[in-house]
Design a protein around this nucleic acid. Sequence first.
DNA 1: GCGTTTTCTGAAAGCGCTTTCAAAATAGCA
DNA 2: TGCTATTTTGAAAGCGCTTTCAGAAAACGC
Lengths: 348, 348
Amino acid sequence: MSHNDQRKPRPRPTISDVARLAGVSISTVSRVLNDTAPVSSEVEHRVRQAIEMLNYTPHLAARNLAVRKTETIGLLLPEVGNNFFAPLLRGVENAIRPTEYQLLVHASLRVPDPAPWRHSPIGEHNADGMLVFVNSMDQAELLRNYERGFPMVLLFFTPPSNARIPYVGFDNTTGLCQVVEHLVQVHGRRRIVYLRGPVGNFDSEEREAAFRQTMERLGVPVYPELVARGHYSSIGAEQAIQELLDRGIDFDAVFAGDDDAATGVLAALRRNGRSVPEEVAVVGFDDIPFSAHLNPPLTTVHAPVEQAGYVAASKLLSLLAGEMPELATRLPVELVIRQSCGCDRTFL
Amino acid sequence: MSHNDQRKPRPRPTISDVARLAGVSISTVSRVLNDTAPVSSEVEHRVRQAIEMLNYTPHLAARNLAVRKTETIGLLLPEVGNNFFAPLLRGVENAIRPTEYQLLVHASLRVPDPAPWRHSPIGEHNADGMLVFVNSMDQAELLRNYERGFPMVLLFFTPPSNARIPYVGFDNTTGLCQVVEHLVQVHGRRRIVYLRGPVGNFDSEEREAAFRQTMERLGVPVYPELVARGHYSSIGAEQAIQELLDRGIDFDAVFAGDDDAATGVLAALRRNGRSVPEEVAVVGFDDIPFSAHLNPPLTTVHAPVEQAGYVAASKLLSLLAGEMPELATRLPVELVIRQSCGCDRTFL
DNA sequence: GCGTTTTCTGAAAGCGCTTTCAAAATAGCA
DNA sequence: TGCTATTTTGAAAGCGCTTTCAGAAAACGC
């Protein structure tokens, strides 16, 4: 109803205003702004003074248009509920900070686009390159961007085989191998439930393959009734476990998929009076900060999320610099043993 | 070293390319793109076809320049380590999604700026308005933007008294009052340690004031040796508690500042063999998802972070629409009682 | 001092789009 | 059919900046 009554909405000064006030041409102002050509110190001083007085800030859109670069890199995420966006972002930020680039973040909810000609909300038109999180962009668009030569790097999934797009992910295979070996070799568990992530999730599928392979190698069967979907979420996992329990299915360990899911597993088990780790051991994946504080402290595999963000952004930066970074990076993960597996490490 | 060998880096098509291919003028193309004026259906069809063929996407910087709007709103954050970044972003995204706006996120590390004329990395020049998180922008710049009439809304802090900038925060006072009352009235605690947040943090100061006030009202003293700084972080709080313990200071409860800090408190206490809640009760603030899974489940006050993001973004949107939203919003918080205070709620 | 470099500066074009403004095409009506 | 009212279209200016190009000024050499 009422008007926005912020005061003095005088129009923002432009480069011409500065030029006029300093008594020079706009070219000169531009030169002192960007230091692209020598300017006599007397003139430079006048210009700086004018800038100061007017409180002038160059208009980025105009600049971008003129130089045909946006100086921003995009980060495309799927639904933002995920607990590891914070560290991921931190990594990206750290890589980007020393540069001129800005970060444009977009969380796509994957709604079908109303305007068919308007492609992704972030792309060639508003970014010089982008970081694509798994499940945030469909394959067709990914390919289209690739064909156009638009710089991208993929986070936590690999590109279609014919596209040479750099990506970074975790060494899921080794991680799973280690945690499973630990469960069966040191704790003698055999009926291990495996909680998958969301359907179509790359990491999830890779982990499952590694799981089956390791189990086979160790000679312990993967019981079909013990693999369920935990959706990498606390409540999803809780329900999955509850259902197994309700169906009277017996198990002595669970790989939760990730740590979020592990908290759900812990909750379900506790509510049903199953002791962890005595009756059932539980392990996660990711090692989010809270894992150490769960009850019992969670044995999990540490995934360097922040580093992933950093590495991905660095790759993109080098792509933008015209270089071709290493295509694939698998960040090493590390088994961190606490107590939920049955080990007796003292806390912290 | 090697070149970026993505193929076919043919230049992106412009509106002129589309016009030429469709055999019309660029004005016409613009019109079908934006539906700003009637276009005969035959022509419209040709244009759409051309757009399709060329896989054309309008260049946003150019468009922004022409219309003098950026269609993006900025979100300025301090260091992104914060655990409630994810829900906050989710709220903001939800509010923004139905609109045309994009979200530009910038985490400022508060480094002194090298180029003095280049103000905030996000501001008038690249956004139509912005959401300013506490501690992410200095007062001078805040005021400067305000004077210019640049739309902003503040998150978790109030503006200088002479600036009518909308803000949203939590009802810290009520929250603190409730949790403190609970501690002293139902659990009879009297020697309560109070862990402050980071220096200069608005919420922290507000909470401390409320704490002192409530204590006074209840007639229980605030012992100076019991107030320390927990920095709203797990390890900060852990150290603070450890130090109190080392100094042999006695206490029977601790208000941790926030839930992150509470996990640190719990860890320190456990490591030193103090039982929670029997010997010392601990409570937090925020109610992050993990709080329910801590050992023991944390009694805390629930702060609707996602809602805060949503409300803040909505306010900004209405500011952008030329309206003046309600200036101050204090989101209600709610005491959630679990077990770390000494209550015996069954889990979940 | 005078021609020649070298340094500094301004005019003007152009980045890709929107948006007047007026002309061209079409429709409406007598 | 002729003339006006209406719809559809294109030319051109302009958004705020960078950058080429060439001219002006200053510095240099002899």
